[in-house]
Amino acid sequence: MEPHVLSNLITAALAILLAAALLRARRDPLWRGAGRELARRRPIAVSVVALYVLIAGLDSIAWVDGHAPGAKAESGTLQGQARSVIDRLFPADFQERSYSAPLATHELYGEEPLLHPGKHLLGTNMIGQDVLHLTLKGARVALVIGGLTSAIVIPLALLVGVSAGWVGGRLDDAVFFVMSTLASMPTLLLLIALIMALGTGTTQVCLALGITGWVGLARLVRAETFKIRELDYVQAARVLGTSELRIVWRHVVPNLMHLVLITFALLFSGLVLSEVMLSWLGIGIDGSWGRMIDQARSELSREPVIWWNLLASSTALFILILAVNQVADAVRDVLDPRTALEAL
């Protein structure tokens, strides 16, 4: 399957999942109240996150322009390549030969006139790509990092944590040993080692981030499952002979969702920032803001200083992380009654 078709399918599936989750949450008064409280406390941060999600979503829907019969191939050679909605906001051949400053009419070096003078709001990079365009596309990469990794971390941590906490005994001992082994390795070193062994690439990096990231959540889940297992109504359900799996699914997992959501929110910004570090070490993901920051590093020592690449990518990164951090804090306050009480 062509990559862009796969991407479209996944985006559609995620959109449906998100809609379904929101609809379900709306029906549950607890979650609805939490959602309303979240929007009340952090309206701006929530909208910013939503905006990034929207941009990433639009950038994930792509299609190839069909050959209109008889039409001449355009001068740009992008014919046959899939272009996303975000790409289509820009002209197809929106590329210069080299650096140019924001809104410049000529190249930075050599004074050659640009193909699109005055059109590059944030200038162009070393190979003439529009920086604004690249920055917008970075949103998708960042969300893929956070999303794909979470898609590894959350099910894994739930599976391991719940089974260890519910079954206990030998299984729990084994799980505990594996977790303490993984946790004993310094995170960044482990991450590097994993990527060196697995190789670079989006999936590999996310897998490595997932392997280093699941232990924390699994520990929380395990401890919480221990507690839930001892609750009266759970014990009662066991006595009544309800099947264990059913109890876990109906009583344990729903009571862990707030933990999962809090951890997801807190984890997310850490993941994106980790990728930035990995980019700097040369083992990051193509097209990420980390890559742009990494490239921009040497540009600051040029004369004249090339600042737009760094500014655009780091601002986009900063705003996302700040918004996510604020949302994460609010989510924790809203969902975790202990800290919520403390905040009184």
Binding site: V276, M277, G290, R297, S314, F318, I321, N325
Partner: peptide, 8 residues
């Protein structure tokens, strides 16, 4: 401060 990458 937390939201700024250490690289910056």
């Amino acid at each position: 401060a937390m939201s700024v990458s250490i690289l910056l």
